Every structure is written in structure tokens, then in C-alpha cells.
Amino acid sequence: MRYAKWTILTLLALTVFGFFHYTLPQHDIVRIVNTYQERQDLDDWTRIFWASPDDQATGLINRDVQFIQAVDADGKPHVYRNEDTGWSWPPYFKFDTANLQTQAEDLKSTAEAPKWVSVTHYGWRIVYLSTFPNAISVRPVEGPDATIIPWVNIVILTFLAVILFMLRRMWLQFRERMIDPMVEDAEEAWDSVDARADQAAAKARGLWGRFRAWLDTWKGRPRR
């Protein structure tokens, strides 16, 4: 039972971690090398990794998606999709896809004359599933060693930690005031029942003992 409990808790923790890792904004320091547009098929389960903006019907089986290609300081390639999120989840309320694509186009550079930028995005790059993180914003930085403090993540995670702490305190108080007294009453009732059962058993043993002793008194009497 203990292993089942820890297995469930581990799976729950991984699910929560994966949810926040996918949803919360991340930052990459890269240089943009290309922008392009490509038609993508949306007719399988991987559709969940693509945005569903309000101005596009969910029944579409394919649509044109804009992409931003970039390379980081170590030469690792990064490919971002550039889609509006609209009013859907996650709540980035992004409506400026065209403006962001224009900005990214203007910030393209070469290895000889790099322009380093910070790309804010959410989502995962999974090569085998052809999924791409969605770029939210692009802004120039001084160099590949620029430090980006994730203030949004800090605020959100701190707020959630406070909420969880308060919920835990409320649960402990509820358990102390409501559940623990009920458990104690149940234990006392059970102990009382157990004590009465012991008394009844002892009384029964006493009666049986007296009955056997009475029978033994007849064993030694001569028959007439």
C-alpha cells in the first residue's frame, strides 16, 4: 500500500511539473537566422500542441503557420512557431503574430555580425512529434550571456506556494477541530465495546467455571 501511495504521489508531482513547465514562459538567448511560413496538418492528436485562437475554426484540418528559426551561442538550433493564442489557454492573450514576425524578420543576423535576442516562449520542442514552442515576444539583448530574470514565473509560483500553504493550514485546522475528535470518539466507543466484550467473556468464563465445578461435585458421589 505504501508503494502505491508513493507511486500515485510521484505521478501527480510529475503531472503538475509538466503542466507548469509547458505553460509558464521560458527565455532563450539566440540569434534569429530565418523566418518562414508553412502549412501544417492538424488532423491528429498532436493538435493539442498547436494554438486554437478564437478567430480560427477548430474544425480546420490544416492551416498556415509562421515560424522563427534561431541558433544559440553553442550552435544549437531553435525553431519556434508564431501563433496567436487569443483568449484561449494558456492565457498569454497574444494577438500580434504579424507584428512579431515582422520584428523577428528585422532582427535576423549572421554568425559574423550576430544580433542577440531574448525569445520568450512557452511549450516544448519535440522533434519526433513535430511540436514547437510558441514565441510570445522577441527583444534585443546585449549578448549571449545576458541574464533574464523570470519575474512572471517567480510571482506565479510564489503565489501558488502561498495558496498551498494556506490550504494546508486550513486542512490541518479542519482535521484538528472536526476529524480528530470524531476519530477519538470512535476509538473511545470501540474501546468501550471491547471492554464490555472482555467483561462479558470473563463473566461467561466465570459461569462456565462454576458450572463445571458443580458438575465435578457429582462425580464423587456414590450411586444409589
Rank of each mutant, 00 (worst) to 15 (best):
R81P: 01
G86N: 02
G75L: 00
T58Y: 13
K76W: 04
Y80V: 13
E83I: 04
D41K: 06
S52F: 06
G59I: 15
D44Y: 05
E83P: 01
R47P: 02
Q40L: 14
V65I: 15
T46L: 07
D54L: 07
R47N: 06
H78Q: 03
T58P: 05
N82F: 06
A73T: 09
I48H: 10
V71W: 00
W50N: 12
D84W: 06
R81I: 14
V65W: 07
P77F: 00
D55G: 02
V71E: 01
H78Y: 10
E38K: 15
F49L: 05
D54R: 03
F67G: 02
Q69W: 12
W87F: 13
E83Q: 15
I68Y: 00
I68L: 04
D84P: 05
A57F: 10
V71A: 00
F67W: 02
R63N: 10
A57V: 13
L60G: 06
T85I: 13
Q69C: 08
W87L: 09
Q40N: 09
D41Q: 09
A73R: 05
A73Y: 10
A57L: 11
Y80S: 02
W89V: 12
P53G: 05
Q66R: 08
G59C: 06
V79T: 15
L60E: 12
A51L: 04
I61V: 14
P53I: 08
V71N: 01
N62T: 14
R81D: 02
G86Q: 02
F67C: 02
W87Q: 08
D54Y: 03
F67R: 01
P90V: 11
D74F: 04
D84E: 04
T85S: 13
R47H: 06
V71L: 00
T85C: 05
D84V: 02
L42H: 05
G59F: 15
G75K: 00
N82E: 04
I61E: 11
T46F: 06
F49W: 13
T85E: 02
G86A: 09
K76E: 06
Q56H: 08
L42F: 13
F49C: 11
I68W: 00
R81G: 03
S52E: 11
D84F: 02
